[in-house]
Amino acid sequence: MSLLSHSRRIAIVAPHADDEILGCGGTMARAVAEGADVHVIVVTRGQPPLFDEELVQRIRSETLRAHEIIGVKSTIFLDFPAANLDQLRRSDLNHALSSALARIDPDLLLIPFIGDIHLDHQIVFNAALVHARPRSSTGPSCVAAYETLSETNWLAPGVTPAFIPNLFVDISSTLERKIAAFCSFETQVKPAPDERSVEAIRALATTRGATVYRHAAEAFVLIRQIN
Rank of each mutant, 00 (worst) to 15 (best):
residue 130 V to N: 08
residue 112 P to M: 11
residue 24 C to I: 10
residue 192 A to D: 05
residue 64 L to V: 07
residue 159 V to M: 08
residue 61 S to M: 09
residue 56 V to W: 13
residue 59 I to K: 12
residue 153 N to K: 09
residue 119 L to D: 13
residue 107 D to R: 01
residue 166 N to F: 03
residue 42 V to I: 15
residue 137 S to V: 09
residue 222 L to R: 05
residue 131 H to D: 07
residue 75 T to A: 06
residue 64 L to M: 13
residue 93 L to P: 03
residue 184 S to V: 04
residue 104 I to Y: 07
residue 148 T to C: 11
residue 154 W to H: 10
residue 203 A to K: 04
residue 22 L to M: 03
residue 163 F to Q: 02
residue 8 R to V: 14
residue 106 P to L: 03
residue 155 L to E: 10
residue 43 V to C: 00
residue 44 T to C: 08
residue 163 F to Y: 10
residue 64 L to E: 14
residue 44 T to R: 02
residue 108 L to A: 01
residue 208 R to F: 08
residue 93 L to E: 03
residue 35 G to E: 02
residue 43 V to G: 01
residue 36 A to L: 03
residue 149 L to P: 03
residue 24 C to V: 08
residue 72 V to W: 05
residue 119 L to T: 14
residue 205 A to M: 00
residue 38 V to S: 00
residue 26 G to H: 10
residue 207 T to P: 01
residue 188 Q to S: 01
residue 44 T to P: 01
residue 42 V to W: 09
residue 191 P to S: 13
residue 75 T to N: 06
residue 174 T to E: 11
residue 70 I to R: 05
residue 155 L to C: 08
residue 214 R to M: 15
residue 154 W to S: 08
residue 48 P to I: 15
residue 214 R to K: 15
residue 181 A to Q: 02
residue 86 D to E: 13
residue 123 I to C: 06
residue 32 V to R: 07
residue 55 L to M: 15
residue 171 I to M: 10
residue 195 E to C: 03
residue 146 Y to E: 04
residue 202 R to H: 00
residue 114 I to P: 06
residue 200 A to D: 01
residue 75 T to C: 11
residue 101 L to K: 06
residue 101 L to G: 07
residue 171 I to G: 08
residue 27 T to S: 13
residue 93 L to A: 06
residue 225 Q to N: 10
residue 83 A to M: 15
residue 91 S to H: 12
residue 89 R to W: 15
residue 207 T to L: 15
residue 159 V to F: 10
residue 31 A to L: 00
residue 203 A to H: 02
residue 214 R to F: 13
residue 196 R to T: 01
residue 51 F to K: 11
residue 95 H to E: 14
residue 131 H to E: 10
residue 78 L to Y: 09
residue 140 P to Q: 00
residue 183 C to N: 11
residue 98 S to N: 07
residue 46 G to V: 15
residue 147 E to C: 04
residue 48 P to S: 13
residue 34 E to I: 02
residue 166 N to V: 03
residue 95 H to S: 13
residue 132 A to D: 07
residue 86 D to R: 10
residue 124 V to F: 01
residue 69 I to Y: 03
residue 122 Q to N: 12
residue 196 R to E: 00
residue 146 Y to L: 06
residue 224 R to M: 15
residue 14 A to D: 06
residue 201 I to M: 10
residue 211 T to W: 12
residue 15 P to G: 01
residue 13 V to E: 05
residue 139 G to A: 06
residue 170 D to N: 11
residue 8 R to N: 14
residue 33 A to N: 11
residue 170 D to P: 07
residue 62 E to Q: 11
residue 166 N to C: 03
residue 201 I to C: 02
residue 8 R to I: 14
residue 215 H to P: 07
residue 153 N to I: 08
residue 67 H to C: 15
